[in-house]
Each structure stands twice: as C-alpha cells, then as structure tokens.
Amino acid sequence: MSQDRAPAWVVPAMRFGYSARGLTYALLGGLVFSAALTGGQTEDTQSALATLRGESFGPLLLWVLGAGFAAYAIWRFICAFMDLERRGHDLKGIVARLGQTFSGGVSAGLAVTSARLAMGAGGGGGDSARTLASWLLQQPFGKWLVMAAGLVAIGAGGYYGLKALKEKYKAHMRATPTSRKLDPVVKAGLIAHGIVIAIIGGFLVYAGLTSDPSEAGGMTTAFEAVRAQPYGQVLLAALALGLVAFAVYCFVEARYRVVPARAGDDVTTLAARARAKAEGATRRMASQIG
C-alpha cells in the first residue's frame, strides 16, 4: 500500500536510525583497523557494541543505540509497507521492498543485542551466519536453502557495489556542498560494505555445498579471510577504512536523505543536480555547434 504523503514521524526515525548505524560501523571499522595493525582478533558488529559496555557512559549509550536501531527497523518496515520511496509494485520494486524488510530485521536484531548488553547480559552469542546455516540444513532441501541464502547475500553485496558505481544513492540524497564533497567517501563505504556481505555469502554457499554449517561465517570470518590473503594485513586495513567510510555514508544519509513520500517538489537531490548539469552541458555544446 502507498499513500500521497508519509507521516512526519518517519523522517526523524530514519535519521536517528542511520546515526546509530553510523556510530556502530565507525566503532567496528576502528576495531578492525587496530586488529590489522596489531595482528589481534578481528571483530563484528556485536563485538563493537560490546566494547561500549565497560565505558562509564557505555550502558546509556547502548540504550540510545538500541533505540536508534529500533527506529531504523521501524523505518525500514514502514518504508517497505507504505512504499515511501516509491519503488513501485513491479518485480524490481517488490525485490527492493523485500530488501528493505530484511534490512529492518537485521537492525531489529541489533536493537535486541544493544538492549541485552546494556542490561549486562550477553549479546545473543554465536555466529549468526553459522546459526542460520545450521537451522537451514535441518530443513527439507536444506543444502539448497543454504546455498540460496549465500547467493542472496552475494547479490546484496553486488547491489551495494552497483549502488556506488551507478550512483543510485543520489536519487534520495539532498544536494548540498557537504553531501557533494563527501561523495567519494560515500562510494568507498558502499563498496567496502558490499565486499564484506559478498564474502559472507561466499562462505554460506560453500557451507551449503559441503553440508557443513561450520564452514559458514559472519563478519569476523570474512575479515580473517581477507587477512589470510597475500598482503592481507594491508587489505584488511583498507577494508577497515572502508567500513569507516560506510559509517560516514550512514551519517550523510542521517543528515541529507530525502523521503520521496514526504519531501516537497522544491527539494533538489544530487541525482537531479547531476541531470541538470548534464543537460546544461548538452545545451551549451549544441549552441556552440549551431
């Protein structure tokens, strides 16, 4: 279902959610960069959140982050249900809205993790990818389900890369001097995030092929796989900086993202500005030729 205008509360919920996501990835990127320099254990999002628990304001910050993740989850669920980004009802639109729902589910899980850590409990424990693979392998056609999940993850990683290279994110980004200056960082962040997701997908596919859930792995496994490559320490450090860049992308989204079902016609996005610039250049060229 869709409506002519989205309720006003979805915008602050979206901004709050992206901010929480950005802070988490900034922490994660810093931890992974430190691990690349020192040879220490790499971390995942849950571990990044757990580092806050020992700080003086850690529990309070975890509650704030949990609220932010919950807000982001609600935003993604409502965005998909009400089609706030005008994705449409064709196959492409349905796939995009399913992706929004999945993203909301992941964020809801992080909200629960943050709340558990704030209360002094564990974050839920275990590797989520291995848990998923183990559960799927127990279902009918489990081997194929695990491989399908892996292929979906690889596709999602590829989507992030295409989103960066084709600058699809600009369609919903307000054009300002700051958003234009940070554009290269945004692209790098999206590509880095896509690489991590695709690697996780690759491990899931292999777990399905071997019918062995221990072959699956989440972010920590992906980071260790990168470090195991030639010049792995350098590659891991570069990937960590990419995750920090993805945090910047989240902060840019928090500040400048436009909700099409809420924004007015007077809002200029980066995509609209780029089109206007290209059309202006075409007209100037045509006038010179004429």
Rank of each mutant, 00 (worst) to 15 (best):
F77P: 02
F77S: 11
F77A: 15
F77M: 12
C79S: 15
C79W: 06
A80V: 02
F81M: 11
D83I: 11
D83N: 01
D83E: 07
D83R: 01
L84R: 02
L84E: 10
E85S: 01
E85I: 00
E85T: 00
R86L: 05
R87K: 12
R87P: 04
G88R: 06
D90W: 11
D90V: 00
D90F: 07
K92I: 08
K92N: 13
K92R: 13
G93V: 02
G93W: 08
V95Q: 12
V95S: 07
A96V: 04
A96H: 06
G99Y: 09
Q100I: 01
Q100D: 15
T101N: 00
T101A: 09
T101Y: 02
F102L: 15
S103M: 12
G104K: 01
G104W: 06
G105T: 13
V106Y: 09
V106G: 03
S107Q: 10
A108P: 07
A108M: 13
G109F: 14
L110R: 01
A111G: 13
A111E: 13
V112F: 13
V112A: 14
S114T: 13
S114P: 15
S114M: 10
S114K: 10
A115C: 09
L117R: 06
A118K: 02
A118G: 03
A118W: 03
A118L: 11
G120F: 07
A121C: 09
G122A: 10
G122S: 15
G123E: 15
G123L: 14
G124I: 09
G125V: 07
G126E: 14
D127S: 09
D127F: 10
D127I: 05
S128I: 12
A129G: 08
A129K: 12
R130H: 14
R130K: 14
T131W: 12
T131F: 09
T131S: 14
A133E: 15
S134Y: 06
W135Y: 07
W135Q: 14
W135T: 12
L137M: 05
L137D: 04
L137F: 03
L137P: 05
L137V: 03
Q138E: 15
Q138F: 02
Q138G: 14
Q139N: 07
P140D: 05
P140M: 05
P140L: 04
F141R: 05
F141P: 02
G142Y: 08
W144I: 07
W144Q: 10
W144N: 02
L145N: 01
L145G: 02
L145F: 12
V146T: 05
M147L: 07
M147N: 05
M147C: 11
A148M: 10
A148P: 01
A148S: 14
A149D: 12
A149C: 12
G150L: 11
G150R: 06
L151R: 05
L151T: 03
L151D: 10
V152D: 06
V152S: 10
A153Q: 11
A153K: 04
A153C: 09
A153S: 14
I154L: 14
I154K: 03
I154E: 10
G155I: 05
G155R: 09
G155N: 11
A156P: 01
A156G: 14
Y159I: 00
Y159F: 07
Y160I: 04
G161Q: 06
G161I: 04
G161F: 06
G161R: 00
L162Q: 08
K163S: 04
K163A: 03
A164L: 00
A164C: 05
L165M: 04
K166T: 04
E167S: 00
E167C: 01
E167Q: 05
E167H: 04
Y169Q: 00
A171I: 06
A171W: 06
